[in-house]
């Protein structure tokens, strides 16, 4: 265990940075603590979605035909468009972090705002998709309507579809909220090349949200499209 630990042995600065909290000795220590904290948080997120993915996997194997049929009711072009949007937002996020690292305040703000906009586009498309599902009575539960012989098992697919994409969207909403605060902080000039941890942490979170979608897209939209 101990050899896996990078020790914070940096020396203290003569003048402490404004952003240094009292209980840390150095900025280095503070930053490493935040980074580790964020990664541990993402670790919890992996297991959070992991349980859901297993449920999906199990029922997909059991009820493949129902899943294939239900999946075909999703709009693949909207799904692919959203995938592109989200990957694009990951790019702008990475560039925002880079701008923060290199102390380019206005570029940081610009990239952050682009990320927020792309995130909102994604959510907007999601709203369109959800509205369509409501209209077609594809929401599982008492109002579910399906002509299919696999109607019952299709409900499992849609239950998982809504739970998975709903939780994903919830994560995005939280991300957009956090990012708005970080953008405001960046605009106020709170960050410099020694302290940009909030930008970086938001970035990690946002990339994780992207990562979940990278799996959700093929699993939900592309179950069986070739016939």
């Amino acid at each position: 265990m101990s050899n896996a630990v990078a020790h914070a042995e940096a020396h203290g600065h003569a003048v402490p940075h404004d952003a240094l909290q009292h209980h840390f000795e150095t900025m280095q220590q503070q930053k490493e603590a935040s980074t580790l904290g964020m990664w541990v948080f993402l670790l919890t997120e992996v297991l959070f979605f992991g349980g859901l993915f297993f449920a999906y996997l199990l029922y997909r194997v059991w009820y493949f035909d129902a899943f294939a049929e239900a999946s075909r009711t999703l709009d693949i072009s909207l799904g692919a468009f959203n995938t592109a949007v989200l990957i694009g937002s990951s790019l702008t996020m990475a560039l925002a972090v880079r701008s923060a690292q290199t102390n380019q305040r206005s570029a940081t703000v610009r990239w952050l705002i682009s990320t927020i906009v792309l995130g909102c586009v994604f959510l907007g498309v999601k709203v369109i998709e959800y509205a369509d599902k409501f209209e077609h009575h594809h929401v599982p539960g008492p109002n579910f309507v399906s002509e299919s012989v696999w109607a019952a098992q299709e409900q499992i697919f849609f239950s998982l579809y809504f739970t998975m994409t709903g939780l994903h969207a919830l994560h995005m909403i939280v991300g957009v909220g956090v990012m708005s605060v970080v953008t405001w902080m960046a605009a106020k000039g709170r960050f410099d090349e020694h302290y940009y941890t909030p930008v970086e942490m938001t970035g990690l979170y946002w990339h994780f949200v992207d990562l979940v979608w990278i799996y959700l897209f093929p699993l939900l939209y592309l179950v069986e499209r070739h016939n």
Partner: peptide, 25 residues
């Protein structure tokens, strides 16, 4: 996902501890 983790999330350039967290998850 690997590309995102390694490059966008900088794991390629991160400490061993960060890598350990990824592997643990």
């Amino acid at each position: 996902a690997t590309l995102v983790v390694l490059f966008f999330m900088h794991v390629r350039y991160s400490s061993r501890l960060t890598k350990l967290v990824v592997v643990t998850s």
